[in-house]
């Protein structure tokens, strides 16, 4: 009886093992990744004197951040913060508007000319392959210092990112409503309006709102290269090691980011569940 149970167990385990994928490739990859990280940790002196020596200095800087000082600059900083929020809003809006036609051009089912569609997709990839900060440098040169450069930097990266997300949403739509619209005699544009848009619009709005949140965070640092907003004030205070005033600005940024996150979450719920 006991032997029979053991034999059955062995057979079951053999069956289970046969069903499982070979674990060794995954283990080799994991070992390689961990090895690379370990190498980096040693090469960058994370495991080493540099890290240990820096900790007291970090604690010193953190101690000097308290209490937050410089409240007399508050009006100036609030203005700069407003500039930052405005940059994120306009940049996202322009980016989302540009991404709409680009997204359709990047989707296989709305642009059947494969060569052209592939080209548009690589163009969108190129837009988002460079960080906001690099585009901001380019636009500071073109349109001068100030938030306009930041708006354009955010708009370009967003156009690329949102076009990718939009095209994926468009490719994942159900064909049947499109066929239905077409068989009812709709033109090409009408098919997209009544067959496709209702399927992707909530998705698109949600993506755009998510980018707005993310861009508000990105916009807080664009000032480092002169593209306007609170980032200029912050990097200025940090460069001269004015930790007290820097911590006030960081506090303001936290409040603004938190407020935008809450607004965006509420809007998303209202627009998408309510639709």
């Amino acid at each position: 009886m006991k032997d029979g149970g053991e034999g059955q167990r062995a057979r079951l385990e053999a069956l289970l093992a046969a069903g499982r994928p070979n674990p060794w490739p995954a283990r080799a990859w994991a070992a390689l990744l961990v090895g690379l990280m370990l190498y980096a940790a040693i090469a960058f002196e994370l495991i080493g004197a540099k890290f240990v020596d820096g900790l007291p200095r970090l604690a010193g800087a953190a101690a000097m951040m308290l209490p937050p000082r410089g409240w007399e600059h508050l009006p100036e900083w609030l203005w700069a913060l407003g500039e930052t929020v405005a940059m994120a809003l306009l940049g996202t809006l322009l980016g989302a508007l540009a991404a709409l036609p680009l997204g359709f051009a990047c989707a296989r089912n709305t642009l059947p000319l494969r060569m052209l569609q592939f080209g548009f997709r690589r163009f969108a990839d190129a837009l988002r392959s460079l960080d906001h900060l690099i585009w901001a440098i380019v636009f500071v040169r073109a349109v001068g210092l100030g938030p306009l450069a930041g708006i354009m930097a955010i708009a370009l990266v967003d156009a690329g990112t949102l076009a990718k997300l939009y095209s994926e949403a468009i490719e994942n739509t159900d064909r049947k409503p499109l066929d239905g619209a077409r068989s009812a005699g709709a033109s090409g544009a009408e098919t997209i309006r009544w067959g496709l848009l209702p399927q992707v619009l909530p998705n698109m709005l949600a993506s755009a709102l998510y980018m707005w949140e993310s861009n508000t965070r990105s916009a807080t640092i664009l000032g480092i290269v002169g593209a306007g907003g609170i980032g200029y004030q912050l990097s200025d205070r940090l460069r001269v090691y004015d930790w007290g005033e820097a911590s006030t600005i960081i506090l303001l940024i936290l409040v603004a980011v938190y407020a935008i996150d809450l607004t965006s979450a509420r809007l998303r719920r209202a627009l998408i569940v309510g639709a």
Partner: peptide
């Protein structure tokens, strides 16, 4: 909420 570039400026001071 704090951008990595801001952390980076502080960490360059420390490390």
């Amino acid at each position: 909420a704090v951008p990595d570039l801001v952390f980076a400026i502080i960490f360059v001071f420390a490390f």
